[in-house]
Simulated assay, not measured.
Amino acid sequence: ILADEINRTPPKTQAALLEAMQEYQVTAAGERYTLEKPFFVLATQNPIELEGTYPLPEAQLDRFMFNIVIDYLSAEDELQVALETTTREQASLDTVLSGADILAFQSEIRKVFVPKNVAQFAVDLVRSTRPGRNGTLEFVSNWVSWGAGLRATQYLLLGGKVRAALRGRYNVAIEDIHALSYPVLRHRVLTNFYAESEGITVERVIDQLLNDVPEPKSGLS
């Protein structure tokens, strides 16, 4: 499903989408319908216009693997899009992968090895986002109202497996966790009023976490 400007959908529709994302099923008139796999949701949000929008609850945001910020196009890309969308030619779409192909790739990706020290770093990084714990970093206590949960760790590792495979590696590295920290944590770490009043963004919180959370040793001599 591609949901454009998902924050314009009312809460009842959002709840129905949450069922589909979590349970891979939908309910209509008391009947449940199983969704065929592979099923996933791509959604956009307009970060500027807030009138008439309904913020997504944290439980639904947590179901999205990544939160990717899309900036303006480069000058070259903007020129290409402008030229290609103002002619009489119609774009043609070709099938690249079947559903079975996607499921097969997903199965293969899970075979990529994650060293224990890399998994430990992912766990430590995510746990460090949570305020109110013993040993919480001072800036987290000052700036964060809610930290990331278990899904963040799972998605760091799964995303790391994909990134490693795309780069021809057979194992996940610390650099993969670093690279994926922003899209995985951006929508799972909530800053508090003090941070917002001081202009402290969630990206700055993640910057500081990556700087302060130590990387476990690999155990190799």
Rank of each mutant, 00 (worst) to 15 (best):
I1R: 05
I1E: 03
I1P: 12
L2H: 07
L2P: 00
A3S: 09
D4I: 08
E5C: 07
E5T: 03
E5S: 05
I6L: 14
N7R: 02
N7I: 04
N7T: 11
N7Q: 01
R8W: 00
R8P: 03
R8I: 01
R8L: 06
T9A: 14
T13M: 14
T13C: 06
Q14R: 03
A15R: 03
A16C: 01
L17Y: 00
L17H: 01
E19L: 10
E19V: 11
M21C: 04
E23A: 05
E23S: 00
E23F: 07
Q25F: 01
Q25G: 02
V26G: 05
A28N: 04
A28M: 14
A29H: 05
A29M: 04
A29L: 09
A29N: 07
E31Q: 15
E31G: 04
E31M: 14
R32F: 05
R32M: 11
R32Y: 05
Y33G: 00
Y33R: 09
Y33K: 04
T34Q: 15
T34F: 13
L35Y: 10
E36M: 03
E36H: 08
K37S: 08
P38A: 08
P38K: 13
P38H: 12
F39Q: 06
F39H: 07
F39K: 08
F40V: 03
V41R: 02
V41Y: 01
V41H: 02
V41M: 05
L42Q: 05
T44M: 12
T44Q: 11
T44L: 13
T44F: 11
Q45C: 10
Q45F: 06
P47T: 02
P47W: 04
P47L: 06
I48T: 13
E49F: 00
L50P: 09
L50S: 10
L50W: 11
L50Y: 13
E51C: 02
E51N: 00
E51G: 00
G52W: 04
G52H: 08
G52P: 10
G52A: 06
T53V: 07
T53L: 09
Y54R: 01
P55D: 05
P55N: 04
L56I: 01
L56K: 00
P57R: 05
E58G: 03
E58F: 09
A59Y: 03
Q60F: 09
L61Y: 07
D62P: 06
D62H: 01
R63D: 09
R63T: 07
M65A: 13
M65P: 06
N67L: 14
I68C: 08
V69R: 14
V69N: 10
I70D: 02
I70M: 15
I70S: 05
Y72L: 10
Y72I: 07
Y72V: 05
Y72D: 00
L73H: 11
L73C: 12
L73K: 06
S74Q: 06
S74V: 09
S74D: 07
A75V: 12
E76L: 09
E76R: 13
E76Y: 05
E76N: 12
E76H: 10
D77Q: 12
D77K: 12
E78K: 00
E78T: 01
E78L: 03
L79F: 07
L79V: 13
L79C: 04
L79G: 03
Q80W: 12
Q80T: 15
Q80S: 14
Q80K: 15
V81R: 11
L83C: 05
E84S: 14
E84K: 12
T85W: 08
T85V: 04
T86Q: 13
R88N: 14
R88H: 13
R88T: 14
R88S: 14
E89V: 04
E89F: 01
E89Y: 02
